[in-house]
Design a binder for these strands. Structure first.
Lengths: 102, 102
DNA sequence: TAAACTAGTTTGTGTGGCAAACAGCGTGAC
DNA sequence: GTCACGCTGTTTGCCACACAAACTAGTTTA
C-alpha cells in the first residue's frame, strides 16, 4: 500500500530537501558539531544565506545553536538535535522510496 | 578529491530536485510512457502545476511530449529522453554522494 | 442552443533563496 | 580618543519559481 496521491512527495520534508540545507544537514550528520565558518567553507554559501538557513533549521528544532565568545570574538556552533536526525532519516527513506531505490 | 566548495550542491540538478518534478521523473523512469491524466493521479498535482512542470521538463530536453487526438479529444503523452535519463542518473549519484550514502 | 464536461494552458500571487548592504564588536595605527 | 579595518554574523531588496485559480478550446448531453 502506498501513500495517498496528494501525499506522494509529502514525505520529502521541504525544510531538508532544499539543496543548501540538504548539504548543511548532511555535513552536520557527519560532523556532530560544526561552527559557522566551517559550514561556510563546506557549503560554499555566502554568510547571509548560511545565516538564514541556519535560523530556519534552528526554529524548526532540527538544529541547536550555541553562541559564545572565543578569543573575545563571537562564535556559533551548530549540532543536529534528535528531531533533526530523525527528520533526516525519514527524508532519506522517503527519497529512496520515491526514486525507486527503496 | 571532492568538488570545489561552491559546487557542492551543484550536482543536484534543480530541475530534477524540485519535489514535484522528482516525482514526475521517477514515475516516467518506471513507466516509460505516461499520459497527462495518469501523471495527474500519481503526482497529486493540479492540472496547472502539472502543465507547467511538464513544459519545463520538455523545454530542458529531459522529456518528450506527443500530442494527438484520441476519441476526438486531445491527449498528451510524455516519455523521458536519453538526456533526461542521464540527468536523473547523475542526480541520484550526486544525491547519494552528498547525503553520505555513496 | 445552452449547459456541463474533458483536456490542458495562462495568469496572478506569495513564498523563499540569493547576494549585497548593514551592524556589532574587537584591534591596531596615529 | 578616534578612525580605519577585519571578523562574525544579520537584515534587506530583488528575482525566480511553485502553486492554485481563472481561462481557452473543443466535445458531449439535453
Amino acid at each position: 500500500m502506498t501513500a495517498p496521491p496528494s501525499d506522494i512527495a509529502g514525505g520529502l520534508d521541504p525544510l531538508i530537501h532544499e539543496s543548501s540545507r540538504l548539504v548543511i544537514v548532511s555535513v552536520l550528520t557527519e560532523c556532530q558539531v560544526a561552527d559557522f565558518n566551517f559550514l561556510l567553507g563546506t557549503t560554499g554559501l555566502t554568510r547571509g544565506n548560511l545565516s538564514t538557513h541556519m535560523a530556519r533549521l534552528v526554529s524548526a528544532g532540527y538544529v541547536e545553536e550555541t553562541k559564545e565568545f572565543v578569543d573575545r570574538k563571537p562564535h556559533t556552533e551548530y549540532r543536529l538535535t534528535a528531531a533533526g536526525r530523525a527528520a533526516f532519516k525519514r527524508y532519506r527513506q522517503a527519497w529512496a522510496r520515491l526514486t525507486g531505490r527503496a
